[in-house]
């Protein structure tokens, strides 16, 4: 495993996001995160740290999402559903 030292910088300071009122990212089955997923890689491979682990489940800060498209593919259990945000919402580069 790599070096987990986390930096203090918050790149979201330079990102414009128009958040929708509802999430476009979902965990399909919380049970898989608890019982099968040991490393919870979504908590580190996401470039803006949308995912974090708390109270026995993955929490999703969808308003941080910059739509890189990695999360549904990076999850080793195919347990993340990601949809395009509705038209006009989400990141604006």
């Amino acid at each position: 495993m790599g070096n987990f030292a986390k930096s203090d910088t918050n790149p979201l300071e330079y990102v414009k996001i128009i958040p929708d009122s509802k999430s476009h990212i979902f965990i399909k089955d919380d049970g898989i995160c608890i019982e099968e997923c040991e490393n919870k890689p979504c908590t580190y491979y996401c470039p803006t740290r949308v995912f974090y682990w708390e109270d026995d489940s993955i929490k999703i800060l969808y308003k941080r999402c910059i739509e890189c498209g990695a999360c549904p593919f990076g999850c080793p259990y195919d347990n993340i559903a990601w949809e395009n945000p509705r038209g006009g919402y989400g990141v604006v580069y």
Partner: peptide, 9 residues
């Protein structure tokens, strides 16, 4: 994913 890397880091 497998090597525990964070892109921002």
């Amino acid at each position: 994913v497998n090597k525990g890397l964070n892109p921002l880091q």
